[in-house]
Write a protein that binds this DNA or RNA. Sequence first.
DNA 1: TTTTGAGTTGTTCGA
DNA 2: GTCGAACAACTCAAA
Length: 482
Amino acid sequence: MEKPIIVWFRRDLRLADHAALSAAVATGQPVVPVFVLDDASPARWRAGAATRWWLHFSLEQLGRSLAERGGALVLRRGDARQVLVELAAECEAAGVYCTRGYEPWAGDLEIDLRDRLAASGVVLKRFAGALLHDPDRLKTQAGSPFKVFTPFWNALRRVEIARPLDVPPRIPLPAKKPKSERLQDWKLLPRRPDWAGGLRDAWTPGESAARERLVAFLDDGLADYATQRNRPDRAGTSRLSPHLAFGEISVRQCWFAAKSAAGRVPHSDAGPETFLKELAWREFSAHLLHHWPTLPDDPFRKEFAAFPWRPDAKALKAWQRGMTGYPIVDAGMRELWATGWMHNRVRMIVASFLIKDLLQPWQDGEAWFWDTLVDADLANNAASWQWVAGSGADAAPYFRIFNPIKQGETFDPDGSYVRRWVPELAALPAAAIHAPWLARGDVLAAAGVEIGVSYPAPIVDHGEARQAALSAFASLKGSSAD
DNA sequence: TTTTGAGTTGTTCGA
DNA sequence: GTCGAACAACTCAAA
């Protein structure tokens, strides 16, 4: 009897463009697909609550897709290294195949696993698949990793990106099927209270939904993406982020799909170009994290370690709950809480508000996003928070402080985004909705709004907060380096 | 080695 | 109302 190959699924919950799975099938040997619920990652970066919700359904889908092709997904819990060594012995596997991970702990974990498997004669093979290109092979002419996006982008578009692979038609079962735990027993879904109703309404996890989302976006989002992506009141973004975060669709599939769609939109390439650039930002963040593993915890620019934050549990709580008194900020935070996702433009606004208006450490915002986002991705999350804080690679300059009123008026001009997520302001006219505390008394009364009662008064005065932030950032200048 | 040009997403102020 | 400059230097990447 031929020895099986174990395919270790991680953040690559798909069958298409899965090099490890395709290679395993190509050996002609039986295949044992396994997912290990691994809490070996540092406690701070364990899967958050929204991530666990998504994972449940994504695994359910993956199991079904494998079964349709003759395979059977095995679920196990524990330290992945130990679990995989045991499973390999149990089913007398010849090898373990997986997609390489780039989180700070992933490399060491894979090497350790390789050594442990080798001790019992089992080979570990790692395949690329999480990114467009190998982070160790995209360097400046001087041989160092890029720290600035534009040259990174120029270099990325010059390299050849591997074409996506097809789904293997059949997944051959081993003669003796290894035991699997039951997904329900993992208790990934919330109960008492079941807060996931908004997530269920907003999302369909899984590979086939991911592919449908991509097709729908190419059809009616891509052409106008460059302008519409900034409008939280419209469906102008791709909404692919959670699917990408779980690897239900690969970034290479997205890349090539957008490129070929671009050829069909000859009048303008701004939309496709902007989308490719966004994929490149994801890539840039992943490469940064690969080369600077402390990115999620420590400021990339060391002088920011001396920043005079003013940690304040009440301010943080008001921000988390969407009770800051700034409608565009509160709308974003409530959209996040309800659906596990927030529009990209609004992410920048709420992050700028937490960091620069409330002077809360960016790590607190990062941790909240990590727990609440269905698309939580260590690299994107860390790099983006540091970008807003000004402490990151190629970051926003410190004097760039978003004005939450102006941002609301520009990107949610008729207030429909705010009305949707902050219903207590829904009856206000557009002219008043982004700064209700400035509205005339009769306008507020007619809309049934009482500032400080039915909706909070602004937690800070933006003008004053802006000045305080500018001087806080200016104070860094003198206190450099030591 | 030294030099040079450039650097995602903003806001405010004054002419 | 519109427009350009200032906001702050500094580091990066390439020539």
